[in-house]
């Protein structure tokens, strides 16, 4: 381990943000509220509490936990999209975030343009990205759709393209949200293989996952988040077993899934 190796380090990180009751805030509503002498309804959401986590080169970490446990927030924190409220976040290396269907693709742009744009968003010059376009489309198995606007792609094709792009840019820190699927069945097998290759090759992988099979097979460390705290951190077998045991207990009991 040297001083330039990719690393993700969170020290005593808290993340609090305000959630307002009105999802689409408006000036009108605020004015009416002020005139009535009221204040905006909100609550402070403590998304992460005192999280300590160090991921070193060579580690593939799965983040598990129930809804609202802070999994996505944690990924966004590492991706430098959310700032920590307290504590310190240190991330070294070329970070590639792959959330949802991915990479901020625009429906009006063609496949090639979207790949170039994704590269630019990640900080890769267009000229260098253009050299890789062939490989991307070949892998995604949609060479005929290079110049077709993305809005005509199926969901599967779009996520294949996103996935192929990410595999082509060689991230050092890969942040994956499992909601980002592999696409259709035929591709999924190939994607899983390629994904495994990518995960093996990528120095650091942090992945939010709901599929315990994937976690057990592919990852070598699991962090269980519970209401924003790290409940457990260790080898997949142990953590997954504990997590599943608790899930069953709550299902059998008051029906509350652990946070």
């Amino acid at each position: 381990m040297t001083a330039t190796d990719p690393i993700v380090r969170l020290e005593d990180v808290d993340l609090v943000y305000r959630v307002y009751s009105n999802r689409r805030p408006s000036l009108k509503a605020s004015l009416i509220q002020t005139l009535r002498g009221g204040v905006a309804e909100y609550r402070d959401l403590h998304a992460l509490r005192g999280v300590n986590l160090t991921v070193e080169t060579g580690q593939r970490v799965a983040v598990i936990g129930g809804n609202g446990a802070g999994k996505t927030t944690l990924l966004r924190l590492v991706a430098d999209i959310f700032p920590p409220t307290r504590g310190r976040v240190e991330v070294r290396g070329f970070v590639v975030p792959l959330f949802r269907v991915g990479l901020g693709f625009q429906p009006e742009l063609t496949g090639v343009e979207n790949v170039i744009q994704a590269g630019a968003l990640l900080g890769i010059p267009a000229a260098r990205m253009r050299e890789r376009v062939d490989a991307v489309f070949e892998f995604a198995e949609i060479p005929d759709f290079r110049d077709t606007p993305l809005k005509y792609y199926s969901r599967g094709m779009a996520s294949r393209l996103a996935f192929a792009t990410v595999t082509e840019v060689e991230p050092e820190v890969l942040l994956l949200d499992e909601v980002f699927g592999g696409g259709d069945i035929t591709f999924r097998e190939k994607a899983v293989q390629r994904m495994r290759g990518l995960i093996e090759r990528t120095p650091i992988v942090v992945m939010v996952s709901h599929s315990m099979d994937v976690v057990r097979e592919v990852m070598d460390r699991v962090v269980w988040l519970d209401h924003g705290r790290v409940r457990m951190d260790g080898p997949p077998e142990e953590v997954v077993a504990a997590y599943e045991a608790e899930s069953e207990r709550s299902l059998a009991g008051d029906g509350v899934v652990p946070g």
Binding site: L109, Q117, A126
Partner: peptide, 16 residues
Amino acid sequence: RRRQLIRTFLVQDLRL
């Protein structure tokens, strides 16, 4: 720092 990205955006906005 992100001038590369600005250029890419501009080219694509014009094309679109």
